[in-house]
Design a protein around this nucleic acid. Structure first.
Length: 195
DNA sequence: TCGCAGATATTCT
DNA sequence: GAATATCTGCGAG
C-alpha cells in the first residue's frame, strides 16, 4: 500500500509521472489529511541547472544525494515551504517536487490551516504545504514507514491523462533546462471521467 | 490579467 | 555584506 524505496529509486522524471494519481497521506494527532497528487516536477543532479543540486552538495541540499524515499523540505522567498521527495539511486542527486494535490479527506482541517480560505487549498507547492502542515521539521524523514507523512499506491494513470511542459519559476536556469518538459500534471479529462 | 511586496535561509563574493 | 529564491495574495487597471 505505502510506496516503498524501490519505487523512488529510479529516474526522477519517471517517478514524477508515476506519482500522479497516488495518495498523499498526512497523519496529525487525531486528524488524517489525504490528497490525490495531480502535479509534479522532476529535478536532477549537476547536469540540471534548475536543480538545487546543480552546484554540488551543500548543507541544504545534502538530502538530495542520499537514499530515495526521503523527504526534502526547504524554505524559499522568506515564507514558503516546498515539499519534495528524493529520487534516484543513493549517491546520485534527484528529487520530485509535488506542486499540487486534489483534496480528498480532512478538507475542513486544510481550510483551517490555510487560514480560513476555502478556495485554492492545495493547487500550488507552498499552498499544499500550508494545508498539510508541512514545514522544515519534516525535512529528511523517511516516507516509506507511514508515520507522519507517506504516499500510498492508488492506481496507475493512463498516459492519455498525463500532460507535460516546462517547469515553473526557474528563469535563472540554462535554456535547455528551462525548456525541458519535466513538469507533469493530470489532464482535466481525468477528473471528468474519474472523480 | 498583471505587477509587486512580503520576509528570511542559504549561498555567493 | 549582497543577492537570490522550485511562491502567494492582494490591489490596481
Amino acid at each position: 500500500m505505502i510506496l516503498q524505496r524501490d519505487f523512488y529509486s529510479r529516474n526522477s522524471a519517471q517517478v514524477a509521472k508515476e506519482l500522479l494519481g497516488q495518495k498523499m497521506v498526512r497523519k496529525l494527532p487525531g486528524i488524517l489529511l489525504i490528497g490525490i497528487i495531480c502535479e509534479t516536477e522532476a529535478y536532477f543532479d549537476h547536469t540540471d541547472s534548475a536543480s538545487h543540486a546543480s552546484k554540488g552538495k551543500t548543507p541544504r541540499n545534502s538530502v538530495m544525494f542520499g537514499p530515495a524515499g526521503i523527504s526534502y523540505v526547504y524554505f524559499v522567498y522568506g515564507m514558503h515551504n516546498m515539499f519534495n521527495i528524493v529520487t534516484e539511486q543513493e549517491g546520485r542527486a534527484g528529487a520530485v517536487l509535488v506542486r499540487a494535490v486534489f483534496p480528498v479527506d480532512g478538507i475542513e482541517s486544510m481550510i483551517q490551516y490555510r487560514n480560513g480560505r476555502t478556495h485554492d487549498l492545495t493547487n500550488g507547492p507552498a499552498k499544499l504545504c500550508q494545508a498539510f502542515r508541512i514545514d522544515r521539521s519534516l525535512n529528511n524523514i523517511d516516507l516509506t514507514v507511514g508515520r507522519d507523512l507517506c504516499l500510498e499506491e492508488r492506481e496507475t494513470i493512463s498516459e492519455k491523462f498525463i500532460n507535460s511542459g516546462p517547469r515553473i519559476g526557474i528563469h535563472y536556469a540554462e535554456e535547455k533546462d528551462r525548456n525541458a518538459d519535466l513538469r507533469f500534471w493530470l489532464d482535466d479529462m481525468f477528473y471528468k471521467e474519474r472523480i
